[in-house]
Amino acid sequence: MFAALIKYRWQFLMVAPAVILLLLFSYVPMAGIQVAFKDFHIGYTIWNSPWTGFENFEFLKDSQFWLVVRNTVYIAFLKFITGFPAPILLALMINEVSRGSLKRFVQSVSYLPHFFSWIVVAYILQSLLTLDNGLVNQIIVSLGGDPVFFLGSTEWFRPMIVISGLWKEVGWNTILYLAAITTIDPQLYEAAKVEGAGRLAQIRHITFPGILPTISIVLILSMPSLITVGMDQIYPLMNPANQPVADVLDTYILRTGLQQGYFSIATAVGLLSSGISLILVLVTNQTARRINGEGLW
């Protein structure tokens, strides 16, 4: 062990800052988990607060909490079935573009929205969809329709979240798949052409199997986001009119902990959410290993 440390000392020195940051910001804060089992208030510390056992988990009997869970699952499902395959399809289409200048242009345009913060995206949506002078409602009125209150509609909130999420992240998420495509041996395509395989057959039998391990890894890493569903996207667009469908676990934690001061209950909800995310990662990793032999561990 000591000999390995001496031999690879420069490599260990290079990764040391990342390891230290991981310990400081990911593992040390885990001591705060005990707040979920204590009666914590301002003026106490996490060490001298009285223990309450599982009393803070009484939120499981709250009907409002289960409404929040339903909203979270619904939005997560919609975002997953659209947001996970979309980058794969876009990467396959970009790979089929033969002109290098056009391919670079498409990549640049699709990447650009990723660098906008969700606050900026929310402002853009509000400018486009506002009831009074939004561009979309102006077009609807000019075509003889009635203006639609998109920002306060419970019917339009979820489609708005899904579409804006796709617009912002689909291009950026293609990077891994395009990188995986470049590692595929070009001789496989040459052999397929000799055998008479068309472009669709090459995608089906060469390109897609070639990026399947990457798809498995991305699927496993995306599992925790199913529970969080992106509070930074939802919170700027949430208002009292659409709250019945917009309130998710993260906004529930924010409201319960920071706004109402129930820090212990908010921590308990967060702990439950993290536990569910861990289970999803473990199950997905095991399933991926059984299907194609690829996983994180």
Rank of each mutant, 00 (worst) to 15 (best):
L226I: 10
G198L: 04
A197M: 03
L24A: 01
G165M: 04
L200I: 13
I220A: 06
R99Y: 08
L166H: 14
I124M: 13
P147F: 07
Q11C: 02
Y252Q: 08
P87N: 07
A91H: 04
V15N: 04
D250H: 03
A268E: 02
Q259R: 15
F2D: 08
W47Y: 11
S110V: 13
F208R: 09
G198Y: 11
T72L: 06
N173V: 03
A180T: 04
F12R: 13
G257H: 09
V229G: 06
V109N: 08
K103T: 10
Q260W: 06
E294M: 13
Y111S: 05
T130D: 11
S142C: 03
S110I: 06
G100S: 08
L272Q: 07
K7R: 15
I175D: 00
Q34S: 01
N173E: 01
Q260Y: 08
I279N: 01
Y111H: 12
V194C: 07
I234L: 12
L296Y: 07
F12K: 12
I234M: 12
S225T: 05
N95C: 10
S164V: 11
R199A: 03
A246G: 05
Y27W: 15
F65D: 11
R104N: 10
F150G: 01
A31N: 07
N292S: 05
D232M: 08
F37N: 04
P186C: 03
K103I: 02
L5A: 09
F65N: 12
S110Q: 09
L125F: 13
T52D: 05
I276T: 05
S63F: 08
E294F: 10
L13A: 06
S127Q: 14
S225I: 04
E155W: 14
